[in-house]
Design a protein around this nucleic acid. Structure first.
Lengths: 142, 142
DNA sequence: CCTTACTGCAACACCTTCTGTTACAGCGTA
DNA sequence: TACGCTGTAACAGAAGGTGTTGCAGTAAGG
């Protein structure tokens, strides 16, 4: 499978909403966001649904509907986006239970769980150190 | 799809080889390793092939064939195993190119590449700090 | 009240990757 | 030479992501 791009899509959406807001546009529709990401509006609505459930964006229904940031771009970290989109952790344990009569088979899963927890922790720390405002600033410099 | 378990399988294999070596067994066949991991021997041979190409294990052909560690378990880090199995990075960029006429679409990919590089770096650092000997020790304690 | 425009979501097809399995040729030691 | 194991191709099945269509729900604005 291709690498998971959900964090990328969601971050792109939030950065675009942040820029629109700064330019004085109150809301954007999923069609307008999809035009920037260059994908189907339903993909965008799925991502925006995740972000809405996490309290990062707000939606307005009816005529003149659309999306806007629920909080300032400086206060939204990539860690919140990561949790919002429910990305899977990078490493998984065995699909089938190892042979428990083997000393390695018995203890390897808790041992590796510890290692993977440490990896997950540093990843989360790194994501927590970057905000949507940071990403937008870097984006406009490129 | 289920999470990627290749690093887990390869680490299990190496830990089992390390323990067998300590117990005085010169080599293990892929069938014997598969019995501990509880999977098909071909899965194990695929993993061992990756590890052999990376110089972490050695194979003996012909009658009395089998596998053994090429280096001491203290000197093999999980980072080397990670590189050997060619695991994909946790995050991917857009599948389709964003709209380059949008300022966000133009700059978002290099900006996110920087973020993802930082994440990759801390993951690699964490994996480099753990050896097969560490994993085996923790495994036997559980 | 009714039109209008957009959201929310189900359903589906397609693609890719991973796991697991069978089969068999290749190889080197005893 | 015979044997046992490796190396690898080929294939099936499962799972998840992406993209697409279709349609009901919803509220602003005339």
């Amino acid at each position: 499978m291709a690498a998971n791009s959900r964090l990328t899509i969601a971050t792109h959406v939030l950065a675009w909403l942040a820029l629109a807001q700064r330019r004085g546009r109150e809301v954007l529709t999923s069609d307008q966001v999809a035009a920037s990401v260059n994908t189907n509006p339903v993909i965008i609505r799925r991502s925006l649904g995740d972000l809405r459930r996490a309290g990062l964006v707000e939606v307005r229904h009816g005529a003149g509907a659309g999306w806007s940031l629920a909080r300032s771009p400086e206060g939204i970290t990539l860690l919140e986006v990561y949790d919002a989109v429910g990305a899977q952790p990078p490493f998984g344990l065995h699909h089938t239970e190892p042979n428990l009569e083997c000393p390695v088979g018995r203890g390897i899963r808790p041992a590796l769980s510890d290692v993977y927890s440490r990896v997950e922790r540093v990843v989360r720390q790194e994501l927590a150190d970057t905000s949507i405002a940071d990403v937008l600033r870097e984006t406009l410099l490129k």
